[in-house]
Design a protein around this nucleic acid. Structure first.
Lengths: 351, 351
DNA sequence: TTTGTATTTGCAACCGATTGCATAAAAATT
DNA sequence: AATTTTTATGCAATCGGTTGCAAATACAAA
């Protein structure tokens, strides 16, 4: 029944000999319209192949039904999983997503923020770039009361909601696990420490050491980009150390796996000589050998949760005003890379 | 200088004591407006914090500046990389992306298609779901002359542009390489053979065998989902074969890597007992041990290319009408998993 | 039948930018 | 100075829904 030309409510109105206002109300199930009229309109709409014009609607309602997402990089396990979760929820609720990547640069992040602002997104979901330190570019959103939800790489600010995991706790647990396995010289590889995720993991690492009576040593803390290449570099660096660590806790699986390879290739045994632990539970952690002890990060769920809360807030149910932080459950997953066999493993899930 | 209320061209017009039409034309650099007026308007716009309202614009122009992307699954290496490339190009050209996933189900794919249609995207980029066989759901787009570009998992249709790699050639090369390494019982693991990519790879495999004088055997061709789990299943299946293959060419790295693990754990040597080859050059291929011989698939570039062509077409430069297929360069990457050391490697790039 | 109340529907003014056509102003020509 | 040509601007309609308010119709009570 589709015509070549787009059908509008005016066409429907003319066809049914009623007003456009009534058509409009009928289509959105307005209470003031009689059941019979509604039915007539809805049927005619279907028959004639009517499709609502969002632009007219948005123009009039001053709402876009679009949510902006800014991430550091689309092609990583964490981000793509999180976005998959977001897409699902947004889709279910009739929201569109516009996605852009900062490619880990504040500059691009700022540009994207402006684009999003100009696209008049109803809300924004953001995971910060590696080097973002200043948050002024989000002020335009706060000023206009456009809700901003940060996830994973967040910014502590009373005006926004943060969805995170307990990085501190997990890092603490994993470090403690390494200690329990008998490690004493535990190295930690962190990302940029101004980024909450890495700062928290580092703090957990330090506190666990302290509580275990192991002294923290500056030389055992390294900050890098956590990329594949950084992992390889790291491996080489470790090989050159005269006093090598007996364990390495890396803030990210990809970096950990690549580092392990270098170490292994040089003839060291893992976990025998050096134990390893990562973070994220990236699929790679189950491929690298030995399998990598890591933290099971609920990426997909985090995306769902962040989106759900944003939408709830937009539709009024929500409460970004009252809720300020959502912490998702996550837990360490012990695998062979850290099992020296000396310690207990405290009933932790072994996969 | 930003006010609380949105500034419109009417505000600018009033402020400058000129008509809204002149403002509109000035802002878009219309030739009929004098330089001095244009400058005045553009300056005032900046000063007053004007931002153009896309909905009004779209409503009037009947164009959305939005491109729809439908993919099977967001969280895979291939897809996230391709989307990263698309986003880059779209962003550079002022287009927005709306992205949705079919989750490998035709049903959801159809639903997404309808959503995209109703969102009035200017164009569509699609990689088909695993089980899509019927293409009727794209007819609405073809009927309305909305360009559709398929990438990777494509559909041969004169009305659309396909962006692909030469799956046949690569599969042929990789199979030939295995033969050259001395393999005779080469197994091939394919995906759904109605999907072009898998059909082509399978064809390349068969032809390479034929040309090498190796007889194709039905029992050595297996179709599965190519997922992690499928890879493990496959490993078990191979272990149960009495007459095992001496090489396995899997149509996807993730599946290959997971299969290798099972085989290795059972005590077989790779490539000694069984050589392996995959497809995609997923990061996992450089982690699994031995490193996996595979095909370097230009995911990011494919995303860029698909998007660029779609946009060119929308802006009139393009020619989906004339171009019907774009084949990107790709090549096999030989790594340890297939090097039995008996054969030559024909100068192929070894990474 | 009349008045009052509740239920349905329509009128018309938005939302903000675009554009064909007409007009006004400036420049060039006679 | 009068006329033609060129250049610059404005008028007003249009895109398609939405919604406050008024009007019309239905139904109930008096």
């Amino acid at each position: 029944m589709k015509e070549d030309k787009e059908i509008t409510i005016y066409d429907l109105a003319k066809h049914l000999k009623i007003s456009a206002a009534t058509v409009s109300r009928s289509l959105k199930d307005h209470p003031g319209i009689s059941k019979s009229t509604k039915k007539k309109v809805q049927e005619a709409a279907k028959e004639m192949g009517y499709r609502s014009n969002n632009f007219a609607r948005n123009l009039r309602k001053q709402k876009t039904n679009t949510i902006g997402v800014i991430v550091p990089k689309l092609n990583s396990y964490f981000v793509s999983s999180a976005i998959a979760g977001m897409e699902k929820i947004a889709n279910e609720n009739g929201y569109n997503l516009i996605i852009s990547q900062s490619l880990e640069s504040v500059k691009k992040e700022i540009a994207n923020t402006i684009t999003m602002f100009n696209s008049r997104v109803d809300g924004l979901l953001v995971s910060l770039a590696y080097d973002t330190e200043n948050m002024e570019h989000f002020d335009v959103f706060f000023d206009k009361n456009i809700p901003v939800v940060f996830f994973d790489r967040v910014y502590e600010d009373s005006r926004s909601l943060n969805v995170i995991i307990d990085n501190y706790r997990n890092a603490y647990d994993i470090t403690k696990h390494l200690v329990d396995e008998g490690c004493q010289r535990i190295m930690h590889i962190a990302g940029n420490l101004t980024r909450n995720v890495y700062a928290e993991r580092c703090r957990g690492y330090k506190d666990a050491l302290r509580d275990a009576g192991v002294e923290f040593q500056d030389e055992l803390l390294i900050v890098n980009e956590l990329s594949e290449e950084a992992g390889k570099e790291l491996g080489k660096k470790i090989l050159q150390m005269q006093n090598k660590p007996d364990a390495v806790f890396v803030a990210n699986d990809v970096c950990a796996a690549n580092c392990m390879q270098i170490i292994k290739t040089a003839g060291y045994s893992i976990p025998g000589d050096i134990a390893f632990a990562g973070f994220n539970n990236d699929p790679i952690s189950k491929i690298v050998e030995p399998h990598l002890t890591t933290v099971n990060y609920p990426c997909y769920e985090m995306g769902e949760m962040a989106m759900r809360n944003l939408i709830d807030h937009l539709t009024g149910d929500g409460s970004i005003s009252t809720t300020n932080k959502i912490i998702l459950r996550s837990e360490i997953v012990v695998r062979a890379s850290s099992l020296k066999g000396k310690g207990n493993n405290q009933g932790l899930h072994i996969a």
